[in-house]
Nucleic acid binder design. Structure first.
Lengths: 211, 211
DNA sequence: CGCTGTGAAGAAGTTCACAGCC
DNA sequence: GGCTGTGAACTTCTTCACAGCG
């Protein structure tokens, strides 16, 4: 494998491969082909092989991939081979759902702190996590927490992100529906529920005959 | 403008433009340049102009874009110039958050129905929306509902999607963390909270000196 | 003169086709 | 024979550079 830049799209697919592989492991499959993995993820086998080729040669020609080994490799690439601590900021509707969301565990995430500005929420516990005052966000610096989930209203997102950046947070998963700027050292990934829904009608074509 | 296929990426950006424009309108700005709109969305001005050029010429050289006109045009392209009715399936943590989410209204969405399989939830109301039994999903066909939000557990997603397709649903916003297949006439857009979070650690580079 | 609209150039990502190994 | 790994072809998307209009 010649060195070259890993496409962002490849990185985006890695967690899907990981999910497929863990599912496959649960079913006792110790070996998997690019074809089988592609089917689990909904893509084509050559895309699977090309994606892995950016990081090395993980498979055995004529056989396939050792499922457990591939899981280890992908976890290492994604830095999910260690527990990643996460802080949640904003315990509204979305934030509450996130605190109760069971899907983070499979990737090794641990949501260990939650913050809100609303005094009626502060001090209460959701899913065994204490809700703290946002004015305590600076304490993240000493708690070895690198990741934050931002689920505050749009008009508070920029200011909160600034505070998070100052508190040493290096990655933000943002649910707030707005654009924010952050220092280059901070990576932001955005989830935008309404804008995703908003492009769905575009694809609905009137009066198609066939499927 | 010569006819050619509109890039998916352009369609993905349209709701963001719309949000920026509505924000701009709220602030009383009746005219906006590609530079200003780009700043609101976090991209570059030539991308804005190129995106609009796929649909026609909406601006005035030397001046910019009429904000209200551009809003109308984008709404028309995205088919958001009419109220789009939406059904929610799965009123768990994520589903409940969606029923209370205020962000859909600005795009003209109306969540008018909710379904769950859990009898302890059926018959109750969340945000003034009655939770119905999933066995009633077939009634969607007669209720002029084209869009569904799928927020059921992964192991129920495929089966529920099949039912939705049979009920005439043409677009699905899926939160369930799994791959599903649907008839070609049905468009699926996926939101995957955990996989988005899972690629955040990858981008965190250890020991950088500068921002 | 400023800003839009757009062909053309460039970059990024996907698909192909097949060499090479088990 | 079967499946991986990968350069090369191809497609898609982004950026540029500038013509042309108000």
């Amino acid at each position: 494998m010649k060195y070259c830049k890993v496409p962002d799209e490849t990185v985006r697919r890695l967690p899907f491969y990981l999910r497929g592989l863990l599912l496959s492991l649960q079913q006792g499959r110790l070996c998997i082909s690019s074809q089988e993995l592609a089917d689990l993820v909904g893509i084509r086998p050559w895309q699977v092989r090309k994606d892995f080729s950016y990081f090395g040669a993980f498979g055995t020609p004529g056989v396939g991939y050792d499922t457990e080994k591939l899981v280890r490799e992908i976890k290492k690439i994604l830095k999910l081979d260690v527990v990643q601590k996460v802080a949640l900021v904003g315990v509204g509707n979305v934030g509450s759902a996130i605190l109760s969301y069971p899907g983070f565990a499979m990737y090794g995430f641990d949501v260990v702190a939650a913050f809100d500005i609303d005094h009626s929420k502060i001090g209460r516990k959701v899913n065994n996590i204490l809700i703290e005052d946002v004015s305590n966000l600076a304490t993240l610096k000493h708690r070895k927490i690198n990741l934050a989930i931002l689920a505050v209203p749009a008009d508070a997102a920029q200011q909160t992100a600034d505070t998070l950046a100052n508190a040493g947070i290096k990655g933000i998963l943002k649910f707030s529906p707005c654009y924010i700027t952050v220092p280059k050292k901070v990576k932001v990934i955005s989830i935008d529920i309404a804008t995703d829904l908003a492009r769905l009608p575009y694809y609905i074509r009137a009066g198609r005959i066939n499927d």
